[in-house]
Design a protein around this nucleic acid. Sequence first.
DNA 1: ACGGAAAACGGAGCACGCTCCGCCTAACCT
DNA 2: AGGTTAGGCGGAGCGTGCTCCGTTTTCCGT
Lengths: 203, 203
Amino acid sequence: MSDFDTPTVRADSARNRETVLAAATRAFLSSDNEPSMRAIARDAGVGIATVYRHFPTKESLVDAVYEDQVQRLTIGASELVAKLPPADALRAWMDLFGSWLATKHGMTETLRAMIDAGEISLTHTRTQLLDAIATILNAGRATGELRPDISAEDMAASLLGIFGVASKSSKGAQANRLLDLLMDGMKVTPDRRVDAAGPGSHQ
Amino acid sequence: MSDFDTPTVRADSARNRETVLAAATRAFLSSDNEPSMRAIARDAGVGIATVYRHFPTKESLVDAVYEDQVQRLTIGASELVAKLPPADALRAWMDLFGSWLATKHGMTETLRAMIDAGEISLTHTRTQLLDAIATILNAGRATGELRPDISAEDMAASLLGIFGVASKSSKGAQANRLLDLLMDGMKVTPDRRVDAAGPGSHQ
DNA sequence: ACGGAAAACGGAGCACGCTCCGCCTAACCT
DNA sequence: AGGTTAGGCGGAGCGTGCTCCGTTTTCCGT
């Protein structure tokens, strides 16, 4: 309750920030090729400088949109787990994750650049994503529906791998097949019990 | 001796190509930050379009300069091996390689981009470079001065690693230490014999 | 309620890589 | 030697990410 509670955030500033973020999200989602900062500014109805004031580089804009979307995915995980059996929730969330990634190839180029250009605040979003997955995985462990030896990291890696390979331009069918395969592996069925120390027939 | 011998290469074209290449080399060598294509064109005394006609992208220009320089390095290796003991020749060539790389950080950014942007005609220059190293390494094997179990690929990887880490802005001392360390490992001395099947105390 | 300061605004402008196009010149052919 | 033509030439111009700066808006103290 100190003075720091009101660092004098001007109303127009906050409003514009949100407007730009919304426009950017829209632009990234609907674009075939990467939208320019000018296009986003025009779409938001603000000047280019305003965009840059709130997001000093294009990468930071992409990052902000990305993080925002990740947060929505996190909420989605909670909702799915609340109303579906864990296995179904996981499969549904995979689609959520996939369509999110797929419709978002408008920024993959910049994202790619950010990733191997070194550090990206990916650590944070990554944590959120892993938490979302863990939420579903833990529910599955509790009911015994899902094998307990696969971590959220494993899951995330598998999904990124699958969509990285199979999401290029209308390979949705392949992605679905791979996701089903992954789900098959995740399910604990009567004829296949999975515990910490398995029979070890291989590996 | 068919018509193909004279594909009608215009004199001005060939002349300009060389002029641009020379100007580009000069620019890359002496620049702190990457020179622009315009700057290179101005420096060469030609129009920007002429630069682009001979080198359709900046990357291709960088590649051309790079390859040209690599060829000079190759020649340098032969010369060193002809007049120095293999170990000294190797160490001297390392410096050659290093100063070449160091003075050339005017293009490292573009090079980096080319490398992880996928394919680069690096294969060719790479081969030449490896041949140059192999020349020295083979001489060392013949005299027994250098351990025979390190390939040219190993050597190249080590050097690139060292200069990649230690060549950033006046870390010459560190680079030298690492190079000496590498050389120490390469030398076959009385107290340390190296052959195909070593004592295997570790690994 | 209002006036002034502080901060956000818009857009002109910069340098970049790269392209398009009208002129010009080098190389062939009689 | 002179004419014709293919091709090279220069530079204006496009779209990009990003910055500078004069103008406008919001907020706070009176």
